[in-house]
Amino acid sequence: MSTDEEPSEASEWQWDVVVDVICAGAGPGALAHAIWCADLDLDVEMADAELSSQTSDPGTAAYLQSMTEDLEPEMDRDLALAVVRAQPVFVSKDRRATIEPFFGSRLREWSARCLASPFGVIYNQIPDDMTAMRTVSGETIRVSVLGDYQPETDCPGLELAEWLRGQADDRDLLNQPGSALQRLIFEEGRVAGAALFTEAGTRLVRANVGVALSLGPMPDNADWPTQRQLPDGAAQVVVVSRTASRFGCVELLYSS
């Protein structure tokens, strides 16, 4: 997936910098993924952008289209902060152990929910460092904990978005030179990195571990809904994913 102006062979790319993970997008989902990766001591590159399948770069648009084409095209934005109740479960490393059945329709519903949320993120690859948990409905999910948190207002989505920004700032993730995603760069059909706009010009950044994108714009402060029925007590802020899914979402985790 290269343009006529771009080199077709991977060896011809002249990368300006090599990092572990690139996190791009205007939504707090990208911030959450960056915080998680930074806590794993991974080198994170942040970039801002409002992304959609209609982006001007053909390769990037084709990639996003392929990842979302079986989801609802007119999905309304879902700004409510999701809550999950779950407990850790043991996952056998034995190859002979029973593998849970693959529910394609359930994964599509999950992907659509992540796509509709500003807390959602889409990635080509993630570090294999998530805890398996079982929800009260019996689903197995994968969870990465970002920190303890208790909402103080009845507008928890806005409050949590600001909390994530503070967490990212504490990890110096927001102190990088300003940049925005120009396009994804592909090698042999997979995402290898990205071209970023900067004040000094285009910067080519290779991502050894993966690229995570938060799709859609950051909501205006007045658009966040009130949620007065959240459970009492402290929760954990977690990035939740499903096995075989390329989508994740920030949720509040309460012990079941």
Rank of each mutant, 00 (worst) to 15 (best):
D57S: 08
F119T: 02
L79E: 08
T140L: 04
Q65R: 03
A38T: 00
D39Y: 11
A80Q: 14
N124M: 07
K93H: 05
S56T: 12
E45A: 00
D154M: 06
N124G: 14
T153Q: 08
E139D: 15
E139A: 14
V84S: 00
D78Y: 03
A97Q: 09
L164H: 02
D78N: 11
L71F: 05
Y63G: 07
Y63P: 06
T60I: 05
S53E: 07
L51A: 05
A116P: 12
R96C: 11
S92L: 06
S92D: 04
L42P: 01
L71S: 08
R113H: 13
D41N: 09
R77N: 10
R108S: 13
V84A: 00
S144P: 01
E50W: 02
L81C: 12
R77I: 11
Q87C: 12
Q65H: 08
D129Q: 15
L42I: 00
S92G: 05
Q87F: 12
V91D: 03
A47D: 00
Q65F: 05
D43L: 04
Q150K: 11
P88E: 04
C155F: 06
P127R: 14
A161H: 06
S137C: 09
F119V: 00
L146E: 02
I126N: 02
G157S: 07
T60F: 01
E152V: 10
R165T: 09
A86K: 02
